[in-house]
Design a protein around this nucleic acid. Structure first.
Length: 247
DNA sequence: CATTGTGCACGTCAAGCGGG
DNA sequence: CCCGCTTGACGTGCACAATG
């Protein structure tokens, strides 16, 4: 196991321990967490067979009973690990509450040139909240290519078109023409590889979007902090003006 | 200089969701 | 209901900095 791997295991297991505590507080059965799925995944993916800390701990603790309960644990863990709303959904919900907050657009825009959005992103002060609480010109939240301005890898430029087949993927004959088990197996393998390749690209794209989202939030925080500071100063000024002079 | 810690990007799995 | 997309979670490897 790599050093980094060890660190991540620790980090992961801290979170898992927290979840166990939470589930105990809820009165639900403590989850033995990652062990079953990790093992499951490693078996599937053929990755190294070194057990995780959680696996080791669980093996040590439960040993005999673990086997019969592993399936149950797996499902319980899945329940506990139920997904939070996606960041995009959060932002979109936010945008419906606050009229001025733009939504993260679906794909398309990123293929169609980058420069306009860079300009928008580079001017975070375009955010302005009126005295009535409305936001004006919050262009900085629009999905943009901050990475281009900050020197990050412009991954969107390398990005393979989502609709196009990746290089190296050879289309097999139509399923109707498959007969032998071997052909079926090949077809299954081909489908799997295609799926993995697509998901690989999707994951990259997803991460890129998430980074954008985080940067948007950060710039928003910066803007709101400035705004807050100004308002506090204004308040102090008004207090000075309108407070009764005692002298 | 070896070891350890940290951050980041990546590949994969699986759950959830929306569209057809 | 099925399929494809999106994304959280997990595990891994690599690069680099800090430390003894």
């Amino acid at each position: 196991m790599s050093k980094c791997g060890r660190k991540k295991y620790i980090k992961t297991n801290l979170r898992q321990m927290t979840m166990e505590i939470d589930s105990q507080q809820d009165g639900s059965i403590p989850d033995s967490v990652a062990e079953s799925e990790s093992a499951h995944m490693q078996m599937q993916t053929g990755q190294n067979s070194i057990p995780t800390l959680a696996q080791v701990a669980t093996i040590a603790e439960t040993d005999e009973s673990a086997e019969s309960e592993s399936v149950i644990d797996f499902h319980k863990r899945r329940e506990i690990l139920s997904r939070r709303p996606s960041y995009r959904k959060i932002l979109n919900e936010l945008s419906s509450d606050v009229p001025g907050v733009p939504k993260i657009e679906e794909e398309k825009s990123e293929e169609e040139g980058t420069s306009p959005n860079i300009a928008a992103m580079a001017v975070p002060t375009s955010i302005y909240q009126t005295s009535t609480g409305q936001y004006n010109e919050e262009t900085e939240l629009a999905p943009s290519h901050i990475s281009a301005t900050t020197g990050d890898m412009p991954t969107y430029q390398i990005r393979a078109p989502t609709t196009a087949l990746p290089q190296g993927v050879v289309m097999a004959a139509s399923p109707g023409s498959l007969h032998s088990p071997q052909q079926l197996a090949e077809e299954a393998t081909r489908k799997r590889e295609l799926r993995l390749m697509k998901n690989r690209e999707a994951a990259k794209e997803c991460r890129r979007r998430k980074k954008e989202y985080v940067k948007c939030l950060e710039s928003r925080v910066a803007v709101l902090e400035v705004q807050n500071k100004k308002l506090i100063e204004e308040l102090e000024t008004l207090k000075d003006i309108y407070s009764p002079k005692t002298d």
